[in-house]
């Protein structure tokens, strides 16, 4: 046997003994002596100790499983699904899709009670079909031209299809468009004074006050503000308006798609500041997370979470960072420890 293996076995035996709870001062003295005998002993011990300490991180996952029951490899892998799970992106819930299809048929004057929110749809002075989602809701709407729209949480759109134009007004929130090709009828999304024009492509538009954010995952899109000629956006582009200006970041398509994980009910963070991550969670949940401590707000994290499962998120924060959560009826207040 290799010499190093023997050393490692001794080191593991010491670690096991120390870990067992039966650990006397004499034991500690004997371990110290063994560590001092040879530096190879010490480095072997430190290495195993470091690995064993890191393994304690698994406790963060323990919350999701019954005590005494060991989760399967699949179950564990699912609970730590990678951030770039593109394959998971679009299996949109069929029941929801069907529900929204039916709703669009009713369109004219429908009253809906979803959860605690009531959504009223009237034909009003302007024609067109209207759709809206409650907080935490995600819904897909097929359009008559073959395109489809997916609405994110707390979002509302109006759809007007004419011979010359396919016009969508984004009243609030965020929507993803999968546009069927039709060169004769441009597909125009309006959000306030901004226009986004597409022919056949995939992109999302998010309204943040008067500003908007556009993410393109396929094809080509033209974005116009009130006083600019417009910017052409290609796949992977993430564009934001800042008043009349347009700032464009060019990313890879998978990265751009990460930002659209909400379509399958996830939020994805990549080295994101906690303040920003929390703002994102708050879009999906009535119960708001509040950060009291600037140091906590500055924590950066990477990961993928169910957007409506803020409890797991908060629990993970508590387990892995120096963060304490205080629960009130309508808030979760985060502070440093």
């Amino acid at each position: 046997m290799e010499r190093s293996k023997q050393t490692e076995e001794h080191a593991a035996a010491w670690l096991l003994k120390r870990d067992s709870g039966h650990w006397s001062n004499e034991d500690a003295a004997r371990l110290a002596e063994w560590l001092d005998t040879a530096t190879v002993n010490r480095v072997a011990f430190l290495r195993l100790e470091a690995g064993w300490e890191k393994t304690s991180r698994l406790k963060a996952l323990g919350a999701g499983f019954a005590r005494g029951k060991v989760p399967s490899i699949d179950e564990l892998s699912r609970s730590i699904a990678p951030a770039s799970g593109i394959a998971e992106l679009f299996p949109q819930s069929r029941t929801r899709g069907a529900m929204w299809a039916k709703l669009s048929a009713l369109a004219a004057a429908v009253m809906l009670a979803i959860g605690t929110g009531i959504f009223v749809y009237t034909a009003g002075p302007l024609a067109g079909d209207r759709y809206a989602t409650p907080i935490g809701g995600v819904a897909s709407v097929p359009l008559k031209d073959g395109s489809s729209v997916t609405l994110n949480t707390a979002s509302a759109i109006r759809v007007q299809l004419t011979d010359k134009e396919r016009r969508i007004d984004l009243a609030r929130g965020e929507a993803f468009f999968d546009v069927a090709k039709d060169p004769a009828r441009p597909f125009v999304v309006r959000a306030g004074a901004k226009r986004i024009v597409a022919v056949g492509t995939k992109f999302s538009v998010r309204k943040e006050g008067e500003n908007i954010r556009v993410i393109v995952t396929e094809g080509l899109v033209r974005m116009e503000t009130a006083d600019s000629a417009g910017s052409l956006l290609t796949a992977g582009a993430i564009a934001r308006t800042i008043d009349a200006r347009i700032a464009v970041q060019n990313k890879s398509v998978p990265e751009a798609e990460d930002t659209l994980s909400w379509r399958s009910g996830y939020v994805v963070f990549r080295e994101t500041a906690l303040a920003e991550a929390v703002a994102e969670f708050n879009r999906y949940n009535e119960r708001q997370i509040v950060i009291q401590d600037p140091a906590v707000a500055a924590i950066r994290l990477t990961g993928k979470f169910r957007s409506t499962n803020y409890e797991i998120f908060v629990r993970l924060l508590e387990d892995t960072f120096q963060v304490r959560a205080h629960y009130t009826d309508d808030q979760i207040v985060l502070s440093g420890r």
Partner: peptide, 12 residues
Amino acid sequence: TRSIDTETENGK
């Protein structure tokens, strides 16, 4: 962390 973003400004 593909954090090298090229932030460009176009528009006037």
